[in-house]
Simulated scan of single mutants.
Amino acid sequence: MGNLYPTPNDWKAILVKALDMPVGDIPMIGTAYEVWDIILRRIVPYKEQSIDLLSCVTSREEVGGNNVFLLNLLDSLKDAHKRQVTAIAEAIIKKQCILFLGPSLLMCNQDGLPVPFDKAFSTELAAKLKQRSEPIFFEETKKDQLSYIAQRYNEIPTFTPEDLGQRASKFYEENQDESSLLFERLAKLYFPIIINTNPDKKLYRTIEERKPNTCIYRYYSFENNQNLSSEAQPIMNYNEQSDLAEDQPKTLFYNLLGSFDAPGSLMLSESRLLKFMDKVLRERPAIDKKIKAEFDDQKYYLFLGFDIEQWYVKILFSTVFGLSRQEGRGFSIFPENMIVIPANQDFFEEEFKFYFITNDLAKFIGQVLEKYRELGGK
C-alpha cells in the first residue's frame, strides 16, 4: 500500500472513497509505510472494511488492478465470508445451531438514538448515586459499566437486588428501542435453543407473533429454576423424518441471567454474578439438564453482539455449557462500534476455535437468511 499510495493526498483519497473515513482520522505524519501500517492495523480486525478497501484499490486499473497479491487477498476474504455464511445457514437447516444473544442487542432509545441498555441504565444509576444526600463514590471512568455501578448500590444498607431489578425493568419499559429488523430476520430462522444474556424477551415475542405456539420461554433465578419438565420434549431428540405437525420442534428461549418479568432474578451486580456462577456450578439450582444436553459436538454456535470481556463468560462456555472446541463451529458476530480486546479474541480463537466477524448484525443475518432460503430452508 505504501508503494501504491505514497503521498498524503494519495492515501487520503483512497480512504475517503473506500471507507468513508473522516479526513481528521487519517494520519498525516510519517512515511507512507508508517502511515499505512497504522491504518491497516486499525481496519484489519474488520473484515467488511478490509474487503471495501481492497475492492476499491483493485478496481483502479492504473494503480492496483494488476496487483496479483491484492486480488488474491480480496478473493480469499470474500470466499471466507461466503463459507462462514454458508456454514451457519446449513447448520440452521439441519437444526444444529444454537443462538446466543449478547448485551449489544438490548437497546434503549435516548434522545432519538439507540444506546445499549447496560450502558444507558448504568449511567442513570451512577447519576442517582451522585444525587444522594450522602453520595456514594464510584470511578467516573466506569460509570457505564453496569456490573460495577450495580455493585456500588450494595453500599446502601436498605437496597436489595429486587429493588435494583425493579428499577431496571422500569427504565427499560420507559426507554426501550422499537427497532426490530434484526429480530424479524432471526424469527424467520429456526434455532432449537436461544440463550439470551439480557433480561428482555423481545425476540421471543417476535417469534411467537410470526409462528404462534412454537417458542417456550424460561429464565434462570435462584428461587425458581423454571424447570422444563416434559414441556421441553419437542425441542430434544427431533426426528427429521416426521412430517407430523405435533412433532415439529419448538424453540426454547432461555434468559440465562434473569428476566424483567421477575426483578429479583436479575444478575446485575458483580456479587450477583459471582453468586450465579457458584449456584450454577454447584447445581443449586442447576440450569436444566435438557438444555445442557443440547451442547454436543454436532452443534454450531452463533453469538450475536456478545460481550466476551466479561469474566464469567469463559467459565460459562468451558465449564457450564462445555462448548465444542471443533474448528469452524463457533461464530461471534459483533457490531463495528464494539471494541474487543485482542488478547480476549485470541483466547476464544485458540480455546473455542471461534471465528470473529465484524459486521452490521441485521445485514449479516440477512445474508444468512438469503443463503438459508437458497439452500432450501423454509
Rank of each mutant, 00 (worst) to 15 (best):
L4M: 10
Y5N: 00
K12S: 13
I14Y: 07
I14N: 06
L15N: 13
D25V: 04
I26S: 02
M28C: 09
G30L: 02
G30E: 01
W36T: 02
W36R: 04
I39R: 02
I43T: 03
Q49G: 00
S50L: 12
L54I: 00
C56A: 15
V63K: 09
N66V: 03
F69W: 10
S76F: 14
L77T: 05
K78Y: 02
A89R: 03
A91F: 02
K94H: 12
C97S: 05
I98V: 14
I98H: 07
L101W: 00
G102V: 05
S104R: 12
Q110K: 14
G112C: 06
G112W: 11
D118P: 06
A120G: 08
L125P: 09
A127C: 11
Q131Y: 05
P135Y: 02
E140Y: 07
I149A: 02
R152H: 01
P157A: 03
L164S: 01
A168C: 07
A168F: 00
Y172H: 10
S179Y: 11
S179P: 03
R185V: 03
K188A: 11
P192R: 03
P192T: 05
P192V: 04
I193P: 03
P199S: 07
P212V: 03
P212C: 08
Y217Q: 04
E223N: 13
N237V: 07
S242D: 14
D243Y: 15
L244Y: 13
Q248L: 13
Q248W: 02
P249E: 08
T251M: 09
T251Q: 12
N255A: 05
L257D: 04
G258D: 02
S265R: 04
L273I: 11
L274M: 12
M277S: 08
P285S: 09
K289R: 15
K289D: 13
A293F: 11
D307F: 02
D307E: 09
E309I: 04
S318V: 08
G322V: 03
Q326Y: 05
F334L: 12
E336K: 14
A343Q: 13
E351D: 11
I357H: 06
K363T: 11
I365Y: 01
Y372Q: 03
R373W: 06
G376Q: 04
G377T: 00
